[in-house]
């Protein structure tokens, strides 16, 4: 155990010396890497926020079951029970004919016309909020309830749901591709840096091989090198995202106020930052091992 710790401490010192041996080159590399990691995670974060805002601000697609004029209380209760038991329905509400008429009466243009009616012509209706508002679910529920007793007509926001899903899939694909691209670029950059470092250390590696150093012993400094690059880039990315968000928060609040929506962009906290540094460190280790492996000359 003592030897193992000693070897790790030695490898860490060596990795540090790789970086301190070329401080300017590594400072520039870290800045570049930090930007790549920030762009990768920033894109993912941006997508999450956009999705969240879209759900909060855009009207949610719903499914409305209009009852027949002749629908009795028993049929309405039976439908209520089956809606309550359906796991695909997140929530639903019943709007009675009287409630529907009341809401119409509140509209100043319609009020005089409604006064002329001798009876309430509006049907009762169930408005369903789906757990997964995808077009397929809408179809499924439409089919399930269209032949129910007491149901006269179904009005579905399926087309709206389809548009939302298409836009969402497109945005997700573009942003996901960008996030993946930046992540892959970060990985390749660390692998390339390690490859260059290993080429620079080729003589030392060949000497270590001659003196009986195991492959683990030879690889360990490069793993620490990748870890240091990854951790440094993660820290820089965290700081960068924090700084940018702190700068733009007043503007997003002002924009939100204009559209009467909440545009909340909290900067990443300690937990988010820790996760970011951990992920980039692990990515750095893996990338460095790939880079070093490709420069080995046994």
């Amino acid at each position: 155990m003592r030897i193992w710790l000693h070897h790790h401490a030695h490898a860490f010192r060596q990795a540090r010396s790789f970086i301190l041996g070329q401080p300017l080159r590594h400072a520039v590399s870290l800045l570049f890497l930090g930007m790549l990691v920030a762009l990768s995670l920033g894109t993912g974060f941006f997508w999450q926020k956009i999705n969240h805002w879209a759900r909060d601000t855009l009207p949610e697609p719903t499914l409305t079951l209009f009852m027949t004029d002749q629908a009795n209380e028993t049929q309405t209760h039976a439908l209520w029970d089956s809606l309550a038991a359906n796991p695909q329905i997140r929530a639903f509400e019943y709007i009675s004919p009287a409630q529907a008429l009341d809401s119409l009466r509140r509209a100043p243009d319609l009020a005089p016309a409604l006064k002329a009616l001798d009876r309430n012509p509006l049907p009762g209706a169930f408005v369903l909020h789906l757990r997964d508002p995808s077009p397929a679910r809408f179809n499924q529920l439409e089919q399930a309830f269209s032949h129910r007793e007491g149901v006269a007509q179904i009005r579905s926001d399926r087309l709206w749901a389809e548009r939302l899903e298409t836009v969402s899939t497109l945005a997700e694909s573009i942003l996901g591709f960008c996030a993946l691209l930046f992540a892959v670029l970060s990985f390749l950059f660390i692998a390339y840096q390690t490859h260059q470092q290993a080429l620079r250390q080729r003589e030392a590696l060949s000497l270590l091989n001659l003196l009986g150093a195991s492959l683990c012993y030879q690889r360990r400094p490069f793993a620490y090198y990748g870890a240091l690059l990854g951790a440094g880039a993660g820290l820089l990315a965290w700081a960068g995202i924090f700084w940018v968000l702190t700068l733009i928060i007043p503007f997003t609040h002002a924009l939100g106020a204009l559209f009467q929506i909440t545009l909340d962009l909290p900067p990443p906290d300690l937990r988010d930052g820790g996760a970011l540094v951990l992920i980039s460190t692990l990515g750095g280790i893996f990338a460095s091992l790939v880079g070093q492996r490709n420069s080995r000359a046994d």
Binding site: L210, L211, G212, A213, L215, C216
Partner: peptide, 8 residues
Amino acid sequence: TSARSRLR
């Protein structure tokens, strides 16, 4: 490779 290195 590692075992051979250890012998070395």
